[in-house]
Amino acid sequence: MSAAVPNATADTARVIRAYYDAFNAGDEVAFLALLTEDVVHDINQGGREVGHEAFARFLARMNACYRERIADLVILTAPDGTRAAAEFTVHGTYLKTDPGLPEAQGQSYVLPAGAFFTLRDGRVARISNYYNLQDWLAQVTRK
């Protein structure tokens, strides 16, 4: 069991909040600055990518295909500040067809989601995102 570190949970919560604030603002520079160079990214129902450059490529694809805003953010932190979880709602628009997914036609969606984080030296070293892909598919393929 990890011991509590003074201010660690508050510092961790600030990093996670800054991560989502930068995401919502579309501030790619600030967003990427919150990641370690060797960041591990577990993609929902997908693979694992490692490294800052891989995450930047993922982010570029996401920005081209989707416009999303995070709302209802709740952040939970470990007592030692090394790990965190976030629960939130994604409000999005499917802008451009993402390979392997249904055709984009500007469909809107609202999706409950969550993420798990590992932090190191005040930056995100791992992020694992989770949402219900079947729910998203149902929302974007409605007639």
Rank of each mutant, 00 (worst) to 15 (best):
D72V: 07
R57P: 02
F116S: 11
G26E: 10
F117D: 04
P112Q: 14
R57I: 12
N7A: 07
L73A: 03
P102V: 03
Y19S: 07
D11F: 00
R120C: 03
N63Q: 09
I43Q: 07
R48I: 10
I16F: 14
V110E: 13
A8N: 09
D38V: 07
P6N: 00
A8M: 04
D38R: 14
G100F: 04
A4N: 05
N132L: 04
A64S: 02
D72F: 11
V29E: 15
N132R: 10
F116N: 10
V40I: 05
W136R: 01
A18Q: 11
L111V: 04
A33I: 04
A22T: 04
L35K: 04
D21P: 01
A30L: 01
T97I: 08
E53I: 13
R120S: 10
L101H: 06
R142Y: 05
T118E: 15
C65P: 00
A3S: 11
V39L: 06
G46V: 05
E87R: 14
A30Q: 10
T89S: 09
Y94Q: 01
E37W: 15
Q105G: 04
K96V: 01
G122I: 12
V74A: 11
R123W: 15
I16K: 08
Q45C: 07
T93D: 02
R48C: 07
